[in-house]
Amino acid sequence: MINEGIRATFDQELKELSDQVMAMGITVMEMIKKSMNAFNKSDEKLAQEVIKLDDRVDKYNQDIETKCVQLLATQQPMAKDLRIIASTMRIISDIERMGDYMVDVTKFARRLMGKPKLASAGDVPKMAELVEKMLQETLDAISKKDLELITKVVEDDENVDAALRNMFDTAMLEIEKRPLSAREAIYQLFMARYLERVADHITNVCERVYYMETGELKELHV
């Protein structure tokens, strides 16, 4: 007696909503990649592109939120449908923040352009790679409704936190040893700090995905 077609229009709209969230997340992944390329190659043009991509993320944020409100008003969603829409509204604001942080990361990358690289410069892209992978896996988990993957991503956040702590120590040593490169060390540390914030927002998204699937709202972060 289950009739899949009864809410075909609404189901289609929910699917489009989910596709848009994916596209928004992929845009932030692109920002991470481009930002690190800009940093590695001191490429000003790439840095500009990252900042432009943030406009696209903001646009997704507005469009998706508008769509969510429309669906709430017109479809009176219940149960999982309701959880999907309510969670989506939270998820997009987390992704939007990730975009903002990537702009911050990129701005510091620009300040470092044309300056001699520190020995620890490679730590930043390495951390970015971890963060990008977390985001990629979160998007995969959303599309596959994979709660195990969600748990794994949240655990990975530990590695990002550890990386930040290491980079902090490294920066302190660097500053003590070569006070003249303090500025570069601090800029680099800021980049790491913002990347770590991106990872935190990724774990927020994971918690919403968990809620969407189980109806259980809980802190996955230990």
């Binding site: 289950i2 009864i6 809410r7 149960a79």
Partner: peptide
């Protein structure tokens, strides 16, 4: 779930 989300016919 099927009933309250209107997917039960």
């Amino acid at each position: 779930e099927d009933y309250i989300t209107g997917r039960f016919g």
